[in-house]
């Protein structure tokens, strides 16, 4: 009886703490959301929380920020560009990383550990350091300002982490699976295709989310390699150009952020049931 009570009490306490932390995390986002519906004058003169204080008297909310953003952004083209950049820049590194991780984990070849160490070391290179040399190469090869150029760049930046995470997962698969497959005469590519791939779905989903969000939200890499002309600029570049050089019109940003967040949320919720499994993957060995 007392045991039961204390258990439900501690669970209640745990839930309270979790909900409290979650709310604390959400506060900035809620602030941005509320601000995105407020007129510029109100944004300047009072905090967003004052909306709740006077919720019954004279709340002034407006959709104007969203209207301005949608009409100014050329939103269709920007969204399309963002997808044109993000989808290949997510799928290409993921594909390469899968092959690489499988090879590094289960195939024996010369200097395997060394290659793996180099890849891990690349995790520590700040990407800003690479801008000038890579842009020089892109200039010479005509890749600067083109979509294939930025796919390549994002693939390079995403690969080390993707290989590292996939390696950890794939190397943790039971050895017996591979043994019995090769006894049955399956060549490595078949093992990869019919054993490794289906088993790796959770981790692939988590990595897809990571890489998609990273590329979708990127501003600087796109500005450097693509430039910001409307026919190639992704949505982040267009959003940043809504704000004046002194930071004026920033209330438009709050609305733009919620528009650009939609695909990210869709990807996240679409893949999140795999995501949780992916993070847990490898935590328990049977």
């Amino acid at each position: 009886m007392t045991e039961k009570m204390s258990r439900s009490l501690s669970r209640g306490l745990l839930h309270t703490v979790i909900i409290f932390i979650a709310l604390l995390w959400l506060i900035p986002t809620i602030g941005v959301l509320v601000t995105s519906f407020r007129p510029a004058q109100d944004v300047a003169n009072s905090g967003w929380w004052t909306v709740f204080e006077s919720i019954f008297s004279s709340v002034r909310l407006t959709l104007r920020n969203y209207e301005v953003v949608l009409s100014r952004l050329g939103i269709g083209r920007a969204f399309l560009n963002s997808f044109l950049i993000t989808l290949p820049a997510t799928l290409i590194p993921l594909g390469i990383a899968l092959f690489a991780a499988y090879a590094l984990a289960w195939m024996r070849f010369f200097a395997r550990t060394f290659v793996f160490m180099i890849i891990i070391a690349l995790l520590m290179v700040p990407l800003q350091m690479t801008f000038i040399p890579i842009l020089q190469i892109f200039n010479k090869s005509g890749l600067a300002g083109t979509f294939p150029g930025i796919w390549l760049a994002h693939s390079g930046y995403g690969l080390p982490l993707a290989i590292y995470m996939l390696y950890n997962f794939i190397s943790g698969l039971p050895k017996e699976l591979f043994d019995s497959a090769s006894i049955d005469g399956a060549p490595p590519f078949y093992i990869f295709l019919y054993i490794v791939l289906p088993l790796s779905v959770p981790i692939i989903a988590s990595l897809t989310i990571f890489q998609f969000l990273w590329v979708w939200n990127d501003l600087l890499v796109a500005l450097i390699y693509l430039g910001g002309t409307p026919d190639v600029a992704p949505i982040t570049v267009q959003i940043s150009s809504l704000v004046g050089s002194y930071g004026q019109d920033w209330e438009l940003l709050t609305a733009a952020v919620f528009i650009s967040i939609v695909p990210s949320l869709a990807v996240f919720f679409g893949l999140q049931r795999y995501f949780v499994r992916g993070i847990l993957a490898g935590s328990i060995k049977e």
Binding site: V243, G244, S245, Q248, D249
Partner: peptide, 8 residues
Amino acid sequence: GIWGGGER
């Protein structure tokens, strides 16, 4: 350039 919004 540096301009955005109305300046742009």
